[in-house]
Amino acid sequence: MLNISDLLEQIKQNPYREIVVRTPHTGVVNFADIKQGQAVHGPEGQWKERSGTRLATLTRERNPKPIYAPEKGVVDKVYSEYENAFVENATPLVTIRHHLTREEVENIILREALHLFRAPERAKYYFTPEIDAKMKSSDPGSVVIRDGQELFIMSRMKRELPLYYSGPEGVIYAIYFKPSDNVDADAPLIGVCPQEELPNIKEVIMRVQTEWQEN
């Protein structure tokens, strides 16, 4: 059985995550008025409809694109040497020290508690249309899958292949991939929880909710 207290303690030792904000493509960078030590926020609102703090503007082909902070945190470093310079794709602009949120901690602990089904190879993954429809129409954590079920479509090198789930029967409790992004081999795709263990998982979440202080 998982020792939640130990895990939590471990996380509490270093409750931060460093986020490096990089350019999504080439262009000329102009930083917003941000300084080291300044607090920034990520997208806000009930539907995350308000964007985060603007960190910089990246202009490419006369199209200025704002770059926002993805999460709440404190600016650790601004790469101001790039001010007004043309930079390549994936150039670091700002690093943010982000205090883990309750949800993130939950996720870290759940990764230990859930059965993880991992990507067999580096590829893009999608749910099969039936599963996708089910996921969209039902509550999170209620879609049950069985061993050997066709669950994913794996897409790489312009070819698509079905991928079958192997592992205990249970509900899809967590999803760790985005359909548009490549997933590395062995990275987890989903976290599955056998139905009889759902109460335990709920307990994990309760524990995190009571013990993790957000600031």
Partner: peptide, 19 residues
């Protein structure tokens, strides 16, 4: 040589060509 986000994005090619 320049690193770009995608070979499919014409804007990347144009931006690199200009610079």
């Amino acid at each position: 040589l320049y690193m770009v986000s995608s070979y499919h994005d014409a804007n990347e090619l144009m931006a690199v060509a200009d610079v």
